[in-house]
Each structure stands twice: as structure tokens, then as C-alpha cells.
């Protein structure tokens, strides 16, 4: 299906003793709905697509949104031909489409851009649909508008870091360092990592565990 190499296990953060293991959190737990907020949410979503199992990817947006996804940018992460875009006229339809898609096991990943806070009932319905279909869901939410039903919530901020010094260290000219903060986790501990996507090898590098 995909032209990408199979997922590589991310390097565990080995520098600090009791820090949570990145691998336990990131390839998002399947058959659950997760949330991501912050300025780097799109990149997080693209990375999730890159790590999704074979199958259709559905990205649900509302019709009025002016900005658009750029498949040429997404191509650095995964093959944009796999992506199915659904443009819903309003938030209710977007949720209904998301529920329908999550319940279908043919779909590997459902991405939903949420513009208003989801209440517990809506969040729970998505969660149940994901459980039925075995698909993973990811809601891109505005800051602070998460639903209590989410399995994990991430805050992702792009983060400037000076290029690494020393010989042999390739300057990170092609990708942004992202700070991933796990700010909600229903079954595990929270954590924070600095993550960098290598677009030539399609590899996710955990640069260093970020200080809390």
C-alpha cells in the first residue's frame, strides 16, 4: 500500500532514568481516539498518518476552512494518495462522518479537525465507534477544547534549536524540531520529548527528553 519503509521503533529516551518510554506512548494506541493541540498539530497528524497501518486515511474538515492541506508537504511524511478528504458543512456533520468512518474497520486512521469543544457524550461516542471498528482516531483541537473521553492528549509546539555543533552532525535544515508534550494519558504516565522527523529516511528521531 504505502511506499514508506515499515515503522521503525523510535529510540527510547535513555538519558533519564525514570522518564516514560516514548515507544509506549507514540505509535498511538489503536482503536482509541486521541487529541492533539498546539501549533505543530498538523505535523503530529502527518506523523501519525506515516505510522498508521495499511488502509485508508480519512481527514475530515469543515467546508468553510480557508486554509488547505498541501499534499506536497504531506508527501514528506506519507503518500498523500492514500488520504481521503471529507469536507463536512458543519461540526455536527463532521462528527457524524468521523463516527461512521471510525466504525468502519477498513479505515486505518481518522483525523478530525474540531473547532468547538466536544462534550463528553460526543467524545464518548467517537471512542465507542473507534472501539467497534478498531480504527484509530485523532482530533486536532484548539487549545483547551479537549474532550474528557480522549485516550491521550498531546500538545505539540514547533521549537527552535540551534543546529547541533560538531563534526558529522548534519544541520537540521529540512525539518522542524517539535516538542511533544503528553498532557493527558488515560493509561500511562505523562511525558515530554523533543522529536525530529527525518524526511529522507522517514525516521522519527527522539532528540532528547525535554525538561519538564
Amino acid at each position: 500500500m504505502s511506499s514508506l519503509p515499515p515503522s521503525l521503533p523510535a529510540k527510547p529516551a535513555a538519558h533519564r532514568g525514570p522518564a516514560p518510554v516514548f515507544a509506549s506512548a507514540f505509535p498511538l494506541r489503536p482503536a482509541r481516539v486521541h487529541e492533539v493541540c498546539g501549533a505543530g498539530a498538523t505535523a503530529f497528524a502527518a506523523l501519525t498518518c506515516a505510522r498508521a497501518r495499511a488502509g485508508a486515511l480519512i481527514w475530515i474538515r469543515e467546508t468553510w476552512m480557508r486554509d488547505q492541506l498541501n499534499p506536497l508537504g504531506l508527501a514528506d511524511f506519507f503518500d498523500p494518495s492514500r488520504l481521503i478528504l471529507a469536507r463536512a458543512p458543519d461540526a455536527v456533520d463532521a462528527l457524524a462522518v468521523a463516527e461512521e468512518a471510525l466504525r468502519d474497520s477498513a479505515v486505518a486512521l481518522v483525523l478530525l479537525e474540531v473547532t468547538r469543544p466536544l462534550d463528553l457524550r460526543e467524545g464518548r461516542r467517537l471512542q465507542l465507534a473507534a472501539k467497534t471498528g478498531g480504527s484509530t482516531g485523532l482530533c486536532l483541537i484548539p487549545e483547551g477544547m479537549g474532550s474528557n473521553a480522549a485516550e491521550t492528549r498531546w500538545r505539540v509546539q514547533p521549537h527552535w534549536a540551534a543546529p547541533p555543533e560538531g563534526r558529522g552532525a548534519a544541520p537540521r535544515s529540512d525539518s522542524t524540531l517539535l516538542r511533544w508534550q503528553l498532557i493527558k494519558n488515560k493509561s500511562g504516565t505523562l511525558g515530554a520529548w523533543d522529536v525530529c522527523w527525518n524526511r529522507t529516511t522517514y525516521r522519527l528521531d527522539v532528540v532528547s527528553p525535554a525538561a519538564e
Binding site: S81, I84, P89, E100, D104
Partner: peptide, 23 residues
């Protein structure tokens, strides 16, 4: 199954609103 899903979504939001990217 994906086609069936597209049809089901299409009955709600219109089949032309389910799209794909082409280079």
C-alpha cells in the same frame, strides 16, 4: 469496503465533498 464507506459518507455530506489529492 472503502468504497462503501465513501458512499455512506457521501449520502450525508454529498459525494463531491469526499475528495482525494491528485498530483
Amino acid at each position: 469496503r472503502v468504497e462503501d464507506l465513501i458512499t455512506r459518507i457521501g449520502t450525508r455530506i454529498g459525494l463531491e465533498n469526499v475528495q482525494r489529492f491528485r498530483p
